[in-house]
Amino acid sequence: MRILRLVDKFFSPQVVYAHCDVPCGIYDPHEAQVAAHTVLRMTNMINDLKTSSSDPDFEERKRIISQISRLTKVKEDHCEIVKHQVRIIWGDYFKPDHLTKYKNLHELVFQVMKQASAARQNIDLVAAQDLLSSVQKFAEIFWDTKGRETVRVKSGYPTEGEIVLSK
């Protein structure tokens, strides 16, 4: 063995990994929930934008367009964050054994993807609310697989919605 190690000092061996991503085993649906709340908040803020008249002047139009652009960008970015975070947990954490207990898991993830796309493409309050609801259910399933009880608490965010936490 020492001889082989000595040989390796002169001819460095190729590095091999036992895991596909680092750090393995660290998963949390919290970020997906925060992103879903952000999508809902951005949708509400876009819907709440008002002009002073039916024919606003150029400066006001510029201001409104700028606000809508910024809010839309954040909304779309966070729809993608929801999809990314849920996909990572679904693809890397969940194992086939989980599906025997949570038979609707694939359907729920499919709904998240579709609702996130709808909330991203449109100013759709219902889609944003449904997205948050689905992500909360996803979080509850995730924590249940770890044998952790969950509780829904007031998020304290301007959306006034809830967030799922593990006890």
Partner: peptide
């Protein structure tokens, strides 16, 4: 990557880790 062969089927090689708790 280093993994253990779980099964070979239809010319595809299915691999898994020994540490099932953390293996992705």
């Amino acid at each position: 990557y280093v993994k253990r062969v779980k099964k070979i089927k239809d010319n595809l090689i299915y691999v898994t880790g020994d540490n099932m708790k953390e293996s992705s």
